[in-house]
């Protein structure tokens, strides 16, 4: 009898532990799947239109061509407005970044020691722009599941992050993020992003991301177009020499 009892308790424990790990497993799996959806193309080219909207509704538009390989090589080359045309930013692994200034005909390596700084007047920080898989930067927890989304709470692994947590809603069937909420160190929601995804070929593409800075009431829309995947871009495309062209 005694043995049986212990056995029962033990199996109960095992089942419970399994449940917990299943939960943890789930959160990790979901996040991994989301990363897969977002970062699986080998390379990508496209155009982006960046619309900045201030609190009174005034808009400013920027346009840029993007080429990207993997998730750590990228060139942003601005085409509009004319005051920024030709400016290009090359991002390489390990936070190495180069900026090309056409008016000077010079490139300079730039370093933004604080990743929480905003990228080129947008509401995206350098950190947000980084295309490093979320599962490498955050520890996920499944908070709940809603109709068609999983709600994940992501805690940054690095203490240097500007955020205390992210709340991400991941689409249940397609695994792309639907919304992301950014919480500051005071645990207050400071930004939120709304994603619109569209399937291009075999990949899901974030056709539009709308990032709102809740404090400044400033908004940035990033709209992608002419997206092409897996064209076999070589590493040669992502060099300082190419940047200057």
């Amino acid at each position: 009898m005694k043995k049986l009892k212990i056995h029962t308790i033990m199996s109960a424990f095992i089942i419970l532990a399994g449940l917990f790990s299943a939960n943890a497993q789930d959160a990790n799996t979901i996040l991994k799947k989301m990363d897969d959806v977002m970062y699986s193309p080998k390379d990508m080219t496209g155009k982006t239109k960046i619309v900045l909207i201030d609190k009174t509704g005034k808009e400013k538009t920027r346009e840029a061509n993007i080429i990207q390989k993997g998730n750590d090589k990228r060139i942003f080359r601005f085409t509009a407005p004319s005051s920024q045309a030709g400016i290009a930013v090359l991002s390489l692994p390990n936070d190495v970044m180069y900026l090309y200034m056409p008016a000077f005909g010079k490139e300079r390596r730039i370093s933004s020691s604080v990743k929480s700084q905003n990228f080129a007047g947008t509401d995206f920080s350098y950190d947000d722009m980084e295309s490093k898989p979320y599962s490498e930067k955050y520890t996920p927890k499944l908070v709940k599941t809603e109709d068609d989304v999983y709600v994940l709470e992501l805690k940054p692994m690095s203490p240097k992050s500007a955020y205390s947590k992210l709340i991400v809603k991941v689409h249940k069937t397609n695994y792309y993020p639907v919304t992301m909420e950014y919480y500051d160190k005071g645990n207050k929601k400071t930004k939120d992003a709304i994603y619109k995804f569209k399937k291009i070929g075999k990949y899901w593409n974030a056709e539009e991301i709308e990032m709102t800075n809740l404090k400044k009431k400033h908004k940035t829309k990033m709209i992608m177009s002419d997206v092409k995947y897996d064209q076999g871009l070589s590493d040669e495309e992502f060099t300082v020499r190419k940047l200057k062209q």
Binding site: S83, Q84, L99, M101, A103, F104, K106, I110, N118, G121
Partner: peptide, 26 residues
């Protein structure tokens, strides 16, 4: 100055616009 052209306002507007790119959003 850090672009190597001295601590002064550039005479060329395009240069100012280029420098502005980095200041934007600060």
């Amino acid at each position: 100055d850090v672009m190597g052209e001295g601590k002064k306002i550039p005479d060329d507007r395009a240069k100012i616009e280029n420098l502005w790119f980095l200041l934007d959003g600060q």
